[in-house]
Design a protein around this nucleic acid. Structure first.
Length: 344
DNA sequence: AACTTTCCCAACCGCGCGGAA
DNA sequence: GTTCCGCGCGGTTGGGAAAGT
């Protein structure tokens, strides 16, 4: 159908904002409040796109923004949350009052992702997203609350199957947005609280997501990988609870105790896994696949994926894993589970 | 001092989602 | 049920600053 441009592009100013523009925008929002971004520039007398105004306000002009460097606590929080949520910058920002998603994203890309790459020498996996279920494709757009809801419904149902299932995505109990948002917040809070993460482990985990490429590759890959492994059919969608269940005692992965197919601490004795949310057994000999990668890395398709997988450790590990037929079957089973849930 | 490279961050872009019409 | 619109999100880009040669 073709999509109308977000705003008339002709005659609009781009680039850095001037002080006058900032003042005009701030003044207008102070008087009229946020919202109606599309019409705001016109009303405020700005030659800017509404989106640009919104961004400027959110990232720079808002009064409640915290200025200055990211503190160590914040940094740790970011690492934790990133391990849990992936590149959900807005969600991460939600846990860091006064920080914007853009700020956190930039900070991650410029500081943390690099540091994550620099440290450790363990398994480094770069996953070709296109080979994942659903193409592993992630584009822009908001986190689908419907997916989140569906996923958690699926978990609930798995726990207590009901006779009849209501088709969930369009929840009649409005304001769903508020409810869902609250639920999401709660869920994330729990995730952040329960995620057993040490920075070191996070680094290792992050490294699992990005190999050690050239700087430019590193930059985009870390983004892409992180994005990919938490892609639209992602851990968040699957939800903490679901992943816990999948990683629980009854799960194939837990029973397998894979040594090779997983992304784990390189030194073999690293701290608890960042993504091993609430399932860190403390037994590092039993590698637990980071749940960011859970199900994304199908060893049975290792040959297919070989080009896109880069292992920065002994190949033996992978070879061993690749030859475990039973493990493959169980992984396949897990994959189909995940795929099923993804497609809810 | 001049030039080049790298880093950082503000801003832009394209897309998906939800809701209204 | 479909289309359109507004909004928000994540990825990417571009330019200035800092560091290196």
């Amino acid at each position: 159908m073709g999509r109308a441009p977000c705003c008339e592009k002709v005659g609009l100013k781009k680039g850095r904002w001037t002080k006058e523009e900032d003042e005009a925008l701030a003044k207008y929002i102070k008087e009229h409040g946020e919202g109606s971004w599309r019409s705001l520039p016109k009303n405020a007398g700005l030659l800017r796109c509404g989106k640009s105004c919104r961004l400027r306000w959110i990232n720079y002009l808002r009064a409640d923004l915290k200025r200055g460097n990211i503190s160590e606590e914040e940094e740790e929080m970011i690492i934790k949350l990133h391990a849990t949520l992936g590149n959900r910058w807005s969600l991460i920002a939600g846990h860091l009052p006064g920080r914007t998603d853009n700020e956190i994203k930039n900070y991650w890309n410029s500081h943390l992702s690099r540091r994550a790459t620099d440290l450790g020498d363990g398994v480094v996996v770069d996953i070709d997203l296109s080979k994942l279920p659903g193409g592993g494709k992630r584009r822009g757009g908001r986190t689908s609350r419907g997916i989140v809801a569906a996923a958690s419904n699926a978990v609930k149902e798995k726990k207590a199957p009901k006779g009849k299932e209501k088709k969930g995505s369009k929840d009649k109990e409005k304001p769903a947005k508020t409810k869902a948002a609250e639920a999401e917040q709660q869920e994330l809070k729990e995730a952040a609280d329960t995620a057993v993460v040490s920075p070191a482990r996070s680094q290792s985990q992050s490294q699992c997501q990005s190999q050690t490429p050239t700087p430019s590759e590193e930059h985009s890959q870390s983004q892409a990988s992180a994005s990919g492994v938490t892609s639209e059919e992602d851990p968040l969608a699957l939800s903490e609870e679901m992943m816990s269940e999948l990683l629980g005692p009854g799960s194939p992965m837990m029973e397998l105790g894979l040594d090779g197919g997983s992304c784990r601490d390189s030194d073999g004795g690293g701290g608890p896994a960042a993504g091993d949310v609430a399932h860190d057994t403390g037994d590092n000999d039993k590698a637990i696949m980071d749940w960011d990668l859970m199900g994304q890395l199908d060893i049975s398709t290792v040959d297919d994926m070989w080009d896109s997988l880069v292992w920065d450790c002994d190949d033996v590990v992978l070879r061993e894993a690749g030859h475990h037929q039973q493990q493959q079957q169980e992984l396949d089973h897990l994959m189909s589970d995940l795929f099923f849930l993804d497609n809810l």
